[in-house]
Amino acid sequence: MKLFDSHTHLQDGRVAGTMDAMMDRARDVGVSRILSCGTREEDWSPLKRLARHHPEILPAYGIHPWFIETLSPDWLNILGGFLREGNAAMGEIGLDFAVEGLHRGKQEAVFLAQLRLAKDLKRPVSIHCRKAWGRMVELLKQEGGLPHGGAIHSFSGSVEMVNECQRLGAFISFSGSITRSNNLKAKKAAAAVSLDRLLIETDSPDILPVNVPGPLNEPAHVIHVVKILADLRKTTPENVAETTWNNAVGLFG
């Protein structure tokens, strides 16, 4: 099987000393492409170096809503500079209304600035959303959807929200959280996603699948997401792998 892990954070310092071995394990199970997403300005240069060293890694640069208070005055121009190099995507960006103390208005302003930059540069986006589904959809509609595509990563919304996001140009990505027996909402959503909009991810080094030795997650574990999606959609792991590979290559290159 050929696998595309469509959302990770491999520039994370927790895995810095194990990257070569981790990439070997990923290749052993068929992982041939990995999108690694920056979350703040200090991530971007290490991520750029990592992608140069490992050709399987595609970089995405962005400001995650948890880090909106860390921005430098010229952050948007700096971000544009990173995005203009090669085939970089925009991400991880988004909204998180589940965390107390994060200013919602500032989250929205940073999210919109990044959506508009991605549109100007014709780049796909990787989006984080927690407890902000209605507002995210409102803002995406206001901006004309995702004209160059995007992924809602580690999807946790309803079946109805699957349909809303797909209409706006989004792909729907599932992580190891779908292996949890009590995650019934995501399981229903995974069965409902259009075949041509389905993606897989690990969110490494976080969201370790159930019954997988830790403490940290890694791209090789995306095979566990493939297997449970195959069960939920009543197909084979090979079909899930081929479909999600084609979808992710079409979206991220």
Rank of each mutant, 00 (worst) to 15 (best):
I127C: 09
S194K: 14
L232A: 00
L195E: 14
N246W: 00
I207H: 04
D203Y: 01
F82H: 11
I34G: 09
P209I: 03
S45H: 13
G145H: 00
T8I: 09
L115A: 07
A248T: 13
M1F: 10
E85H: 07
E69H: 12
L10S: 03
D206W: 15
P55A: 15
V249G: 00
N246L: 01
E100L: 07
M136E: 12
P73F: 02
V31T: 06
L117W: 00
K106F: 03
P124I: 02
A21P: 01
S175L: 10
F4I: 05
L121N: 08
G250D: 01
L139C: 07
A220E: 10
I78V: 13
K2F: 06
F171R: 04
C165A: 15
D74Q: 07
I93G: 00
K188R: 14
Q11G: 01
P205W: 08
F82L: 02
R27N: 01
G86F: 03
M1R: 14
G80Y: 06
A189K: 15
S6W: 07
N182G: 11
M1P: 15
S72R: 15
A88L: 02
M136G: 09
N217S: 12
E100M: 09
T70Y: 06
P213A: 13
I200T: 12
R233N: 02
E69C: 06
L195H: 10
R52F: 05
M19T: 03
G101F: 00
L35I: 13
H7K: 09
V125Y: 07
A170S: 13
R180T: 03
R27C: 00
L139N: 04
R130T: 08
G17Q: 06
S154H: 11
G149A: 11
V29T: 04
L112F: 08
L198G: 04
D43I: 11
H9L: 11
L168W: 08
D24K: 14
L216A: 09
G144W: 06
L102Q: 10
